[in-house]
Simulated assay, not measured.
Amino acid sequence: MSSKRKIILMIAVLCTALPDIGAGTATPAIALVAKAMPDVNKSLIQMIVSIPSVCLIFFPPVYAALTRYVKKKKLLLLAFILMLAGSIGPTIFNDIYLILACRFIMGCGNGIIMPITIDLIIDMYEGHERQSMLGYAAAVTSIGGILFQVLGGVMGSINWHYCFLATCVSVPCYLFALIFLPDVPIPVSDEGSRKFEVRKCMKPSLLFLGGFMIVWEMMYFVFLTNISLYLVNAGIANAAQVGVITSTVTVGGMIMSVLYGPIVRVFHEKVLPFAYLVTACGFLVICLGHTALVMGMGALLIGIGYGISAPCQLNLASNLIPREYASVATSVCYTARGIGGFVSPLVITAVCAAAGTAQEVFPFRLAAGVLAVFGVLMIVYLRKMRIKINT
């Protein structure tokens, strides 16, 4: 393959890594939507943000099954149509239930697009190239998250309907991907069958990794769901400073995602426990800090940990089962992340209630302790698997 063709292929694959996972475009305009619908229950309005993320729990397994019968390029086209319909619909309707239905449609599209990016990388790249591409994809997703939030806020300030259209900025990217991506053949097993063999794809090692990812995402969402209220209520930072602190996580994750390939080639399997422990240190800094600057340093450490762990866990999952079942590994990872993000507020609230403590700094202490313990458990897990992450 010529160098020009390689560059075009790389751009086409990375163009699929720009999905808005549901929160990005709508979050900045939620207050405006609530103001425009004063008679609608606030929990229903908040579901505008949560429904696409909940779809991430259920749809990746459906995607994995579809890959046995439908080519991934056709699935990408289907996802593109679903996302476009789910983005345009809320600009037309004023009924909350119709808007939520559109967000569900968009969530189904997300449930296809997010795992398909990783699948394409696994299909088309090997070794060090795969490592670098996984990192680049995570970085592009981070850039997309920033872009969608900014555009959603700006367009929502004009009219709350318009915030949903911010996702349409990715249309040229998906068109580029559909034009230049090759038609990857439908994978078959060694016996020539397209049917799933549960014993081959649902190995205990993969399910254990899924458990790690559920816990990881639960603890990561402790930061996303609690940091703003904690900093403002404690008088540590104002709203503008909170915005800068939370964006530091994205910046840290983006930088480490770009550097992920070289890092994993040096540290091999040690990089994943390191990511857990660095994130635990980030939460510890937040627990001990009393200034916005220190909080920003803690957020940066959390972003560094996330930027390493996200591509690393996906690559590890793909190495645990036969290559023709890579779609299953990807769907397990994204389903685990969806579950972790969804149950995080519920679990943290229950733990705080059981401990009889206010939900202030305690969730951050809990996250620091849990991630430190699971960082050690990850060392044991990797030794048991005897697998190098850079393979």
Rank of each mutant, 00 (worst) to 15 (best):
G109S: 10
Y69F: 14
A12P: 09
R365M: 12
A275L: 08
V351I: 06
V169W: 07
K384G: 11
G24L: 11
G109W: 12
G145R: 03
Y97G: 03
S189R: 12
F221P: 07
C163I: 13
A31D: 04
G153R: 10
V373D: 08
K203F: 09
G192L: 04
I96K: 08
D183G: 09
M297R: 06
I263E: 10
L277R: 05
Y325D: 02
G303W: 02
V347Y: 06
G252Y: 13
L301Y: 12
I339E: 01
S327K: 01
V62N: 01
I88R: 10
V188L: 15
F208N: 02
V251K: 07
A139H: 00
G153P: 11
V70D: 10
Y125H: 08
T25F: 13
S157C: 06
R5W: 06
T246G: 04
V376D: 11
V271G: 13
L231N: 02
G356K: 02
V232R: 11
P172N: 12
I57N: 02
C102M: 03
F267M: 11
Y97S: 11
G107K: 12
K35L: 11
A237F: 04
I116P: 01
A353H: 14
V249E: 06
A26D: 04
C163H: 08
K6F: 01
